[in-house]
Structures are given as C-alpha cells and as structure tokens.
Design a protein around this nucleic acid. Structure first.
Lengths: 138, 138
DNA sequence: CAGCATCCAGCTTGATACTG
DNA sequence: CAGTATCAAGCTGGATGCTG
C-alpha cells in the first residue's frame, strides 16, 4: 500500500513538505488556510470574485483589520488574486487563483462534512457534559 | 443548478448549520478541527490509535497543556474516543470515532493539497515580497 | 469604497511545578 | 505514563480615527 519511505507519515506520499514538522513552511500556509478568518474568506471567494466590503458582510463577524490582514496573507501565499481598479470610488476585487481554487475545493469539502456531522457533534457534547459535571467549554 | 433555497451560500446544500454564521455552533467545531493543534492531532490519529506521549512526539511542537486541551475539545465534539486502561503505569489510547474519521479524511485531503501546492506558494511569496518592499510576514 | 495606524484588553500559549 | 495547576508573556483581534 505504501511504496515510498521518508520523513512523512506512513501512507502519505513522500513530499518535500510536511505539515507535521514544526519548521516546515507548509505549516504556516495551512494555518492561513484553516485559520478562523482564512477558511471563511476562502470559502466566500469560492463562489466568485468579491469586493472588500462584500467579503466583510459575507464573513460574519470579521473586522476590517482582520479581513485586511487575512487577505494579505492569502495573496502573498498565491491563493487569492487582488485586482484594484483605479477609479473613484475605488474598486478592488478579490478572487481565488487556480491554486487557491484547488485548495479551497478541499476546504469546502471539509466545511461541509463538519456541517453535515453537527447533529452528531451536538449529541456527543450533551453526552460528554453529562458524564463530566462540566460547566462551559468551547 | 440549485434546487434549494435557504440561509446557505448559493450552490451549497441547505443544511441547518452554516459555518459562515457567527452564532452557528458548527463554527466552533470547525475551529477545533482546523485549529493549529486540532488539525495536526486529528491528522496524527488518522493512522491509528495513539497514546498521549506518542501524540506529543508526533505533533511536533505541541505542549502538554495544549495537547490535553485539544484532545478534550475533540473528545467532547465526538471526533476522538478516549480509552483509559486502569493499569500501572497508566495507559490511555486515543483514536478517531467514525465521525472523526469522516471529517479527518477531508482534512487530510486538504493538508495534502497544501503540501502539494507549496512550491507554488513559496514562489508566490517571493514574487509578492519583490513587488512590495516588505520585510517579514507569516 | 478601501484600506492603514494606533492603542490596548484579554485570550492563548508555553514553562514550570506538581499529582495519581 | 498521563495528565492538572498556576503564572507570566505575548500575540490576537476589536475599536477608533484617519487617508486617498
């Protein structure tokens, strides 16, 4: 089943990058992609190109600062393309790059599987909180 | 193309949960799954059952406290099963639940796609840093 | 509209020490 | 081994004010 050998976990392809390694740059990128705002921003952009304030409304709860920061990180990683038109009022569109789309496809599959499993999650939480006399957790 | 209508984004199935909504509990669960340590912990457990300190070594850089906290959250969400044997020295095994496995399958697909795209990401960063005179970013 | 700069509260995190 | 308790520090992120 596993014809390769290397620094990666058994069963995974032998890539030069390994998110499990603390020093690997892929770890930072994974954090940008899966971070609280990164994931939602990418997910929102999956539908198509959006402007800054459209994104802000779409990603419920994000602040201007965090959205700006998130977009910079994603743009730098080559996942999001920023296109500014020199008009007044200013118009800037953000959209996924091909790489961003490949990654976001997987990300959305993950998000959907979480949403799909939520009934089970909620039930599990009730059971857990019953067994432990526990007050409040995230 | 889209036979449903509801609070979700166009094109997505009409589930009762929506990660894009600030108040939806699925958002918390998504954060547990994609969080810095949650993702790596689930990924490590995908291979099979692991003990606490095995996990610690596998998830490079995680502290005892963070691993403990992460495992509690994932256990409460019903993604990880904890099995303690009353022996001396104590032995506790963690493994994915069926729900946890379904979600982790998607998570690993995402992680792999990030690793696979890293050459492109690194190249994009170089280009970005050239265009902007920027010193250091994450 | 599309941001950047600053301030600062508080949550997250990592060490460290200790328990069963 | 498998954790819990405590504490300091630093980073995250929200609010505010301003620019082009």
């Amino acid at each position: 089943m596993d014809t390769s050998a290397g620094p990666d976990a058994p069963g995974t392809p032998d890539l030069p990058y390994d998110v499990f390694a603390r020093a690997c740059p892929s770890r930072r990128t994974l954090e940008h992609v899966t971070g609280r705002w990164g994931a939602l921003t990418l997910g929102a952009l999956h539908e198509g190109s959006l402007r800054f304030n459209e994104l802000r409304r779409r990603v419920d709860g994000v602040s201007e600062k965090m959205l700006s920061q998130t977009l910079h990180a994603l743009e730098r990683d080559g996942l999001v393309h920023r296109e500014a038109q020199l008009v007044n009022p200013p118009r800037v569109d953000y959209r996924l790059t091909p790489l961003g789309r490949r990654i976001t496809d997987r990300l959305l599959a993950l998000m959907t599987s979480v949403e799909t499993g939520m009934d089970e999650v909620v039930a599990a939480r009730v059971r857990y909180d019953e067994r432990h006399g526990d007050p409040v957790r995230g």
